[in-house]
Design a protein around this nucleic acid. Structure first.
Lengths: 146, 146
DNA sequence: TTCTTAAATAAGAACATTCCTAATTAAACG
DNA sequence: CGTTTAATTAGGAATGTTCTTATTTAAGAA
């Protein structure tokens, strides 16, 4: 997905195209792995020294609501991470050692979960699913060191 | 699960049995639905006026590590909630309107997810899965009012 | 019981995130 | 182009959560 496509989508949905918002989108398009809020703020303050963290949170939320970015809750420790995503929806394996994440070609809602919610008359708005642990490299590093 | 059982487990694992910790366990044993940190702090400050929120977080984490309580991440808004759990493991439907939660007799890890993680040489430490939305009652209330 | 020590505590700093407000500004329209 | 308006912004206050540190204390050993 390219920057202009995202901005057009935003415009179509009635969102304004501010320089800060454009910069957030560009940073996400450029990124090669999920970014934390801190990553984004640090990077964007070089362009907009006064940019507030709230602006990043707000924009990332808008993009997330539109399904353009995926939000990865990385419980505790480091904050959440975000990545641009053309694909409609997916989950992650998150490494608690290095913070990196791997996409998972599986969503539990598609299986039994949606049905169980309906059974309870529960109006589903969303869901989270993440697996956390140690990635291959971090397991190797741990063994190597000592 | 009763208070003494939990405390024995703690002792067996090398944790001390402090009055504050006992009170946290007792409050959770007594509770009939998941408690927020604020719930716990408010309740426990009647016994220990100086109790810090950190003590609640710490104890709840210990109990969570032991599998004695389940931690329900209720993204944003209201903070996390905790409930005592004798059963090995389960997930929840969380109502974003009233904060209540319903247990879900389903865990995605038991299905495909565990296998997918192994396929990536990913050493699984844990996972989260929650469905959020509006419960039956909150849907009705919304319709009733206007 | 007294001593020792590792664990737990309170307090507050630090950080992540959300919320509020007043000021700015993009976009639509004249 | 100038005006209007609703969205967006920066900034800081307000929460939720974690971390650090100095002090207290439970539990085991003498």
């Amino acid at each position: 997905m390219e920057t202009e496509q995202v901005l057009n989508l935003l415009k179509a949905k009635g969102y304004k195209c501010t320089p800060q918002r454009r910069a957030v989108v560009e940073a996400l398009v450029r990124a090669e792995h999920p970014l934390s809020v801190k990553d984004l703020v640090d990077e964007l303050r070089e362009l907009f020294p006064d940019m507030s963290a709230d602006t990043v949170y707000r924009n990332v939320k808008v993009l997330s609501d539109l399904g353009v970015v995926n939000l990865i809750h990385n419980q505790g420790k480091e904050g959440a991470r975000f990545e641009l995503d053309g694909r409609p929806h997916h989950h992650h394996l998150v490494c608690v050692a290095c913070g990196k994440s791997v996409c998972l070609p599986y969503c539990p809602m598609e299986e039994k979960a949606e049905a169980l919610a309906k059974q309870e008359d529960f109006k589903v708005l969303g869901h989270t699913f993440e697996i956390f642990g140690h990635c291959r490299e971090c397991q190797n590093n741990k063994e190597g060191t000592s």
